[in-house]
């Protein structure tokens, strides 16, 4: 092995190690003020399609990870080597408390949707067609992975994992339940990415392995 090859190998390995252990979610992106199209007329669970204006705000690029959550709440436990996986089994109150503790807040539903959908009313963060890649293995449970692993699950503003990974708590509620956004649907072991307007309503005290969160400011 010559020197150049050795250097290349070392650099590649270093990059791989760093990318598999790094934690991203403190990074935020600013979503500019303006209108966007919210909701859908073709989904009974989403609000009817309408235009909405939002002031500028910032949102986490990545979901909050186990490692980050544990830094604020040391009692949080997770499987070995899952530090860079999205933090889950967290109630809505705990998610809210985490965001407040680090000077942020949970995003409102409309903020979450705009960050995922951009201004062109797209169905998925990356566009209007489902990805060719299978959303998830044929498995009855979620196999969680490092946040940001899916390089194609990127919104027009660069926000990651808004159609796959886990569902995310928002600050919004509907009939005493909290609105979660942006995770996977399991249709009897066939998984689909959620659309940008898909809602899932969950009891806020639930501690579920498929719900995580990100923060806004």
């Amino acid at each position: 092995m010559n020197k150049a090859t050795k250097t290349f190998t070392v650099l590649t390995l270093t990059t791989l190690i760093l990318s598999s252990t790094s934690v991203f979610s403190s990074e935020m992106v600013e979503i500019p003020a303006g209108s966007f199209v919210m909701g859908s007329d073709n989904d009974d669970y989403a609000p009817p399609q309408h235009s909405m204006y939002l002031k500028n705000y910032s949102i986490d690029i990545f979901e909050v990870t186990n490692k980050e959550f544990k830094e604020q709440f040391p009692e949080h436990s997770f499987w070995e080597n899952a530090g860079s996986h999205p933090a889950t089994k967290i109630t809505w109150e705990e998610a809210k408390a985490y965001c407040i503790k680090i000077g942020k807040r949970l995003p409102r539903e409309e903020e979450w949707e705009k960050a995922a959908r951009g201004e062109d009313a797209r169905l998925y963060p990356w566009g209007n067609k489902p990805l060719r890649k299978k959303a998830h293995p044929f498995h009855s449970g979620l196999i969680k992975r490092r946040v940001g692993l899916n390089k194609k699950d990127v919104s027009p503003y660069g926000v990651r994992d808004m159609a796959g990974s886990v569902w995310e708590w928002t600050a919004s509620d509907f009939y005493r339940k909290k609105i979660t956004r942006g995770g996977l649907w399991n249709f009897h072991l066939e998984y689909e990415f959620s659309k940008t307007f898909d809602r899932n309503l969950v009891t806020p005290s639930n501690r579920l392995p498929f719900i995580g969160f990100r923060c806004a400011r």
């Binding site: 669970y45 498995h139 009855s140 449970g141 979620l142 569902w167 979660t180 995770g183 996977l184 649907w185 399991n186 249709f187 009897h188 899932n200 309503l201 969950v202 009891t203 639930n206 579920l208 392995p209 498929f210 719900i211």
Partner: peptide, 26 residues
């Protein structure tokens, strides 16, 4: 899965003639 938590998706309840119902998980 070893965890076995019910995931978001659809259900086909027998008493409703298996008509699909959306479920939020849990």
């Amino acid at each position: 899965s070893q965890d076995g938590t019910i995931l978001p998706g659809t259900d086909h309840p027998l008493e409703f003639s298996k008509k699909p119902h959306r479920i939020s998980g849990g």
